[in-house]
Design a binder for these strands. Structure first.
Lengths: 235, 235
DNA sequence: CAGTGGTCTAGACCACACT
DNA sequence: GTGTGGTCTAGACCACTGG
């Protein structure tokens, strides 16, 4: 049996999908009773819905459905997943894949000792068969024996999950803008000097270990980076 | 009296700050007893710390301090707050501020009816007295009577909070890359064709009402967009 | 096996909005 | 005043790790 929270989360998402923006949900005690859970359990499910922007609460007044125009989510995903979410078919052309020795700041960013082995994978990533971005990924070698023997033209996140049971749970990303150099423009099919979106990512598993360090350059005419930011802090 | 959660949140942050990466915290029952709260209350505080990346839990094993290199937060902030967090002194030069009638897709994005009034504010934003970005903000006029009579060279978020009790709680942002046009290059002090980071933001209050629609163009040589992404879903 | 975090309950009291 | 979400408690059982 799956947890109650997951069950009522799915049920609540269904109900919310059928409601209008700013419509009020039943009060928590009623909702808890209707779903056959305690109020605490219900509130745990409501909390995740609230954090993902589907609902909002007004203390003393009620819980309401959020405006859908704004609820688009911005969860962590790999390139393939990202492209499918945008309605495009992901693809890859492998440019190079080799073990390398990492030193200095690169080793530090990868979270390994100076002089240790890592895998370097360069790919041209496609969306609907057209170039979308050039991506260079670096992974520590130790946790991923035989990585380069696998098919590297698909989603790397899927490969890590299925072959090594490693999940990229969180990623620190930095996004900047550059103009295309001759090599990039040739690969991506744009003119030299055209704007590119540069994304630098460090991916970590659920225990905070560094799994990947990736640098990607996206065609700015085909891609923009979407995200939802929230004020944080307690409650 | 402030809530227990806030109190123990602060206390836990202090303790965590004094611990090494991957060091284990006391077990939950002990921690709850030491802080004089129930385990449920403690877990609520731990949940916010976990979501903001300060700690991670391993079921059956314990709760651990995250690696600090990765814990930099990416909460929503206005330009002024953002610059101070980066150790720079924010400033502004007001380019224009006027009421405008919004129509079509702009009205839709602002969440107001076609033909309604809005305030348009254009500013050159400075960091350490040097140009950092050109920002055009649009706000619905109705909720903010007399907005343009205030000093607009400081943080807009502060102004909304102190004068209108409106808090921008969440923002939907889209980041892309462009090259500087003649006007932008003149204002920002860069060459034409230099890369700029284009940020399009829709800011909402805690009830999901649209508060602002902003388009900013940052000098890519001085600014990059940092964020932490997480896998979401239940539990 | 013992120890840990994850889930879940039933109930209480509070602060706040006014449907 | 009535109804709502926000906070907090004490206790129970489960699933998983091997500290």
């Amino acid at each position: 049996m799956t947890t109650k929270i997951r069950r009522i989360d799915a049920e609540l998402r269904r109900r919310i999908a059928g409601m209008a923006a700013h419509e009020r949900l039943p009060r928590e005690v009623d909702l808890a009773h209707a779903l056959d859970v305690s109020r605490s359990t219900l509130r745990q499910a409501l909390g995740t819905l609230q954090r993902s922007g589907l609902i909002y609460t007004v203390p003393g007044s009620g819980t309401f459905v959020s405006d859908r125009r704004v609820t688009k989510g911005s969860s962590l995903s790999g390139f393939s997943e990202d492209m499918r979410a945008r309605g495009m078919e992901p693809g890859s052309r492998l440019l190079s894949a080799a073990p390398v020795v990492v030193t200095g700041s690169v080793a530090t960013e990868l979270g390994v000792a100076d002089g240790e082995l890592a895998y370097s994978i360069d790919r041209l990533r496609l969306a609907d068969r057209e170039p979308m971005c050039v991506e260079s990924v670096l992974l520590p070698a130790t946790p991923f024996p035989g990585l380069l023997t696998h098919d590297l033209t698909g989603g790397l996140y899927d490969l890590l999950r299925t072959e090594y049971a490693v999940e990229v749970a969180t990623a620190q990303q930095s996004v900047s803008a550059v103009t295309a150099d001759p090599e990039q423009s040739a690969l991506l099919g744009v003119a030299e000097g055209d704007p590119l979106l540069a994304v630098h990512r460090i991916g970590l598993d659920d225990r905070g270990h560094i799994v990947e360090r990736a640098v990607s350059h996206y065609r700015a005419d085909r891609y923009s980076f979407m995200l939802i930011a929230t004020r944080d802090g307690v409650s």
